[in-house]
Every structure is written in C-alpha cells, then in structure tokens.
Design a protein around this nucleic acid. Structure first.
Lengths: 195, 195
DNA sequence: AAATAAAAATACATATGTGTCAGTTTTTGC
DNA sequence: GCAAAAACTGACACATATGTATTTTTATTT
C-alpha cells in the first residue's frame, strides 16, 4: 500500500471521527462518511468494508492521542495523588464536554455490536485502566500517600463511578460540581482531603 | 376503547417485552413484535405506531411491577438499613441476571432516541430513585443508623456506582462478589459494616 | 504521447423496514 | 339471523442502506 494510500486512510479515519462525534455510532452509514470525506461510496469500500471497522480505527486513534496527553503532562517526580487527580480531571473534562466527544458513539457501539473480538477492544481498555489505577494506588499506599486495603476493589469502584457519571452525563446531564463531589469522594476514600 | 381492546393492548405489551429482552431495542422491528404476537402488521398499527411507543409502555409496566415487589417485601417496621439493603440486593439480582432483563434494551433506547419527552421518562425514574434513597439516608441518619453529612451527594454516588455496574455488567460482565464489594462499600460509607 | 495500471465514481441488484389502504373477516346489537 | 360497525389482513408504494460490477478518470511508465 502506497504512502498516498496510507495518507488517505488516515484522512478517512479523522474525518469519520467527526461524523461519529456528531451522530453517534448506530445511525452513521457509509454514505454519511463518504459525504464528509468528499469521496464516493465505491471509493470508500476500497479502504474499509464497514462502519464498525472504521469505528475501531477511530478508537485506536483516540487511544493513541490519550496516551500522548498523559505522557506529555505527567512529570517524572509527580506524586501518586497528583497523577490520580490528573487522570480524574481528564475524565471530568471528557465528561462535561458537550461536543467533540465519542462517548455516545462508544456506548452505541457497545450495544450495536455482537460480542466477540469487537467489543473486546473496549473491555481490554477498561481492564487496562483498572490495572493502571490499581498500581497507582499501590504505589501511593507504599509511599504513605494513600490509605487503602483493597487496591483492586478501590480501583474498580473508581471506574464504576466514572462509568456511572459518563452514562448519566449522556442521558441526563451532570454538572461540574457533581463531578467534583465524586472526585472528592474518591480521594477521601484514599485518605486525601481536597481543599 | 372496549375491554377486549384493552386486553389486547396489554397482551401486545407483555409479548413485546419478551422480544425487547431478547433483542434489545434498536434491532427490534414492528415485524418482530407482530410475529411474536401472531397478529398482522396492519393490526399492530391500529394499537401502536412505533417500537418507541411500545417500549415506553413496556417500561411503564416494568416500573409498576417493581413498585409491587418493593411494597410487597418491605415490612412497616423495617429499618433504613434493611430497606437500603433490600433495594441494593434487588439491583444486584437485576444486574447479574443474564436473561429476562431489559437492561440492554434500556441502554439502547437511551441512545437511539432523541432527547425530548422520550428519554425524560428515564430521567424522571432516575431522579425519583435518587430522591427516595436520599430520604432513606436522611431517615437513617436521624434515627442514628447511618453516619452521613451529604444525603444527596451520597444518594447520587450510589446511583452512579449502580449505573457503572450495570453498564459494565452488560458489556464486560461482573461477578456476584464484585457487586457485593460495592454494596459493602456503600454501606460502609454510611457507617454500617456488613458481616 | 500512447499504453497500461491504479484509483475513483456511478449504476445496479439486493435486502429490509415503514406506513397505508382496499378488501375481508369477525363481532355486536337488534 | 342479518345488517352495521369494528377489527384485522396482506399487498403495495416508498424509503434507505448495503455490497458489487461496470465504466470513467487519473496517474504512471516507457
């Protein structure tokens, strides 16, 4: 596959991302993507065979970009509490964003797709997230920052709260102060009082 | 509308519920419902005009039945902690059920429908739930069962955790012990240690 | 610049769902 | 038991999405 082809594939993914952000997942058709890209349907099929495949590529791109944000903003000597708070505040930002977010699309994708390989991508991301937070808590406890006797349980709890907030934000809306209250809760459970 | 008509409408809703439990919301068509009911497409349109409308009726039915379970199982002199635990365990049952549940359909409905009146039904249910739990916590604090200084915040937190568990159960699965851990967490935050 | 290859656009065949309506069957009241 | 009303059916017209096959355009090579 030529360099130009790679370029075009990337362009399609970036453009499709906009469509998914606006329309979610389920209602997006190949035609929608084609129109935004200013190419023909036949042309798109040369590169991708379905909206699912395209969406998975979009998710891959998002995941890469999130990693970049993370590694670009955490200094070497940050404390565990600082790192956790940075993470939680990134989630908060995402949560409160009204546009430019894939959240709705991701949830639709969850349910639109049949189990197998497809949603496993998302499961893997979730499990990875839990593991990272779990380790972060362990480090925090070890250096005396946190108080906690169930790292995994606490990490899971954090993700359940975040998921609950996410879906609530999508369906009923949440305010910044609601999210802040939850973040304070989480930190408090680890023995940290936020000022 | 005659008595027989009412009968038939109820029959349609009960039968459609089975279909929604099996297939979720988005992929269910009028044809699916018609076939399960053994009536014709034209006939169904005499009673309901869309799957959305039917689904909302199904939700209403479910809500009534849930109320019945609740009022049928809580004695007059139950403590706040007992009531809260009963509620949480009902949620747990629902959460762990693999079939005979509308959870998937409800989430699909969340996202398939446009905001207005439609999803407001769900928002109202959520808000009502929060309010009930909030009051329950207040009562518990007043009679010395619970320790808590933010009723609403705590009630909200409980619902976020439950929502997070629900969606995680749907997409990645949760075990009974994971749910128990969260229930223990919730009670612990109110000053109750579960044996 | 002609021949060839690659890329892209258009048109087609297929599938699935919706909503309606003319015609048929069943029920109801007398 | 029969006429009027109500309930119901199946087919039709319409709309939208998919995936492919053919044609057209663009790019590359000699």
């Amino acid at each position: 596959m030529s360099d130009k082809s790679e370029q075009k594939k990337k362009y399609i993914i970036e453009t499709a991302r906009e469509v998914f952000m606006e329309k979610g997942f389920k209602t997006v058709t190949m035609k929608d993507i084609v129109e935004r890209c200013n190419i023909s349907r036949g042309g798109l099929y040369l590169y991708y065979e379905s909206t699912s495949q395209i969406f998975l590529e979009v998710l891959k791109l998002e995941s890469q970009e999130a990693d970049d944000v993370f590694s670009g903003n955490i200094s070497e000597d940050a404390t565990a509490a600082e790192i956790l708070l940075f993470f939680l505040n990134e989630q908060k930002k995402e949560l409160l964003r009204k546009s430019n977010t894939l959240t709705k699309a991701i949830y639709e994708f969850y349910f639109a797709e049949e189990r197998p390989k497809k949603t496993n991508v998302i499961k893997r991301q979730f499990d990875e997230g839990v593991k990272i937070v779990e380790n972060l808590i362990r480090v925090g406890v070890e250096n005396g920052e946190f108080i906690c006797d169930d790292y995994k349980g606490t990490a899971r709890n954090i993700f359940y709260v975040l998921e609950g907030l996410k879906i609530t934000a999508q369906t009923m809306g949440v305010t910044a102060s609601m999210v802040d209250a939850e973040i304070a809760y989480i930190m408090q459970n680890l023995g940290i009082e936020l000022s």
